[in-house]
Amino acid sequence: MSLNLRARERFFGETMQEVIQNFPGELPRDAVGLWQIIPTGREGFGLSGDELAEFVSLCVAELLAQGAKPVVGGGGTKYDWIYQPQYCETNEIILDAVMKEWLASGAPDCDPGGLWFALPSPYVGNRE
């Protein structure tokens, strides 16, 4: 399957390629969550099924390529984000594990408390 990366997002008019490339722009300020990516594909581009999975995969791959790692919120700890090492170390393995987990759960929109991607920083701790 191959998405039309020139398709325009319904609300803001960016191309799919621009949206995929722009998600990592948030990383210097904050983490990017699956709860942001998935609805963008569903509502912004009208994607479902395999097309939605491909969009999510491309977005996560771009975040990983820009140095982001999987994290969850660090509420109750001294960190903003807690690194999730169960997804392994290489981008390819992380992407595969994240996608398998999301698809196995029924491909939900995900809640804001779920999986995010953040750049390593003093605000990201190891799993405690």
Results as ranks from 00 to 15, higher is better:
P70V: 04
Q84A: 12
M1K: 08
Q86N: 09
L3G: 09
G106A: 09
I82S: 01
P39I: 03
I20E: 06
A7W: 08
V98P: 01
D80W: 15
S105R: 15
I38C: 10
M99E: 05
W35G: 03
Q17N: 11
F11S: 04
V71I: 01
Y83K: 04
Q36S: 00
F11W: 07
S48H: 10
S48I: 08
P108C: 07
A97Y: 01
A53V: 06
L64W: 04
V19C: 08
M1A: 13
I37E: 08
L5R: 09
A65R: 13
A61E: 06
G67E: 07
S121Q: 08
M1D: 11
V72F: 14
P85F: 07
Q21P: 05
Y83D: 05
R6D: 14
L58P: 00
L58V: 06
L3Y: 09
Y83A: 12
S57M: 12
E43R: 15
G46D: 13
G106P: 09
W81H: 10
T40R: 02
V19W: 05
Q84T: 14
E101R: 14
I94E: 00
Y87E: 00
F45K: 11
E92V: 08
E128A: 15
L95G: 03
M99H: 05
R8N: 02
W81N: 10
K69Y: 02
K78I: 15
V60A: 12
Y123I: 13
E18D: 12
E43D: 13
L115C: 07
N4I: 14
P122M: 07
T90L: 02
T15S: 15
V71A: 00
I38P: 01
E54N: 01
P120S: 11
P39M: 02
T40D: 00
Y79C: 09
P108D: 05
K69M: 09
Y79V: 04
L47P: 09
G74R: 10
A97P: 00
D30T: 14
G13H: 06
D50I: 03
V124L: 11
L47T: 11
K100Y: 00
S2L: 08
R42L: 06
E54W: 01
A118F: 06
G33Y: 03
E92K: 11
Q17H: 13
A68Y: 07
G25E: 14
G125D: 10
A53T: 02
G49R: 09
L95R: 07
E92S: 10
L63Y: 05
D30N: 10
L5E: 13
E51I: 00
L63D: 03
L27S: 05
T15H: 03
D80I: 15
A118L: 01
A61Q: 11
Q21K: 13
M16N: 06
K69C: 03
L3N: 12
P70G: 01
P120L: 12
E51Y: 10
P39R: 07
G13P: 11
S48K: 13
G113R: 15
E51W: 04
R127Q: 15
R127L: 15
L58M: 09
T90K: 12
P120F: 13
A61L: 07
N22G: 10
L115A: 07
N91Q: 12
D30V: 09
D30Q: 10
V32W: 05
A107G: 03
Y83I: 07
P85K: 02
D50S: 11
R29K: 12
P24R: 08
